[in-house]
Design a binder for these strands. Sequence first.
DNA 1: CAGCACACTCACCCCGAGGTAACCACCCAC
DNA 2: GTGGGTGGTTACCTCGGGGTGAGTGTGCTG
Lengths: 113, 113
Amino acid sequence: MVVRRPGSYVCGLDAAMDVVGGKWKVLILWALAERSCRFGELRRLLPGVSEKVLAAQLRELEGDGVVVREVYDEVPPRVVYSLTEAGVLLNGALAPLGVWGKEFVLPRLREVG
Amino acid sequence: MVVRRPGSYVCGLDAAMDVVGGKWKVLILWALAERSCRFGELRRLLPGVSEKVLAAQLRELEGDGVVVREVYDEVPPRVVYSLTEAGVLLNGALAPLGVWGKEFVLPRLREVG
DNA sequence: CAGCACACTCACCCCGAGGTAACCACCCAC
DNA sequence: GTGGGTGGTTACCTCGGGGTGAGTGTGCTG
């Protein structure tokens, strides 16, 4: 999270930004939108993330009610992460932002270098 | 900005998050969506922001092409900030996220404390 | 003359998100 | 027994976003 103004949000938007404002969170959501993933799968899907940070961001997303963590008591242990209904809707709410970025940010990167 | 992975975005979404990922940026955009504002007006509309940070975030938003800065060479100096077309569209793209936050985050704050 | 408003800039500091690396317990394959 | 894969935790460190406060130059007001 970037801001964390606990309980002092001006509007729904900065509250949502708080849920989504972590270096890897939108990427995690995007990955889980396609299908539920195990920890190691997510790790491989997000090149560059460290185990510590991935675990932390997943726990925050879980605490914010957008991700569920299911533990299967097997050996070797198996943990599956998936989106809650709120998570699916959050992804939908993020979609227009993704379109905007693709249309207005990515082209600027090319023209600058 | 929170992340700034210069030129190495995975998708449009994290590129957009980079534009919008600053403590006050969505609030600035929200304020400017209603009407263009002078520096001091923005300062008063965002209680808690410091002049330094407000100036910095405005300059980043300007650099990202979502805000225009118009200087009127008068005395006392007058500087007016407004949204570009991209800025207006960005605000529109953020709207669903605001709705989601209002629906899923703000209620949780009440039930927790 | 003092003080304030304008729109900043500059120097300095702080804290926490995120990175690094080691370690854990358990099991399987070689 | 050594290495790898499972899903983590812990301690330590870095870096920079953001906060604080002072300075800037001009002109109006009290």
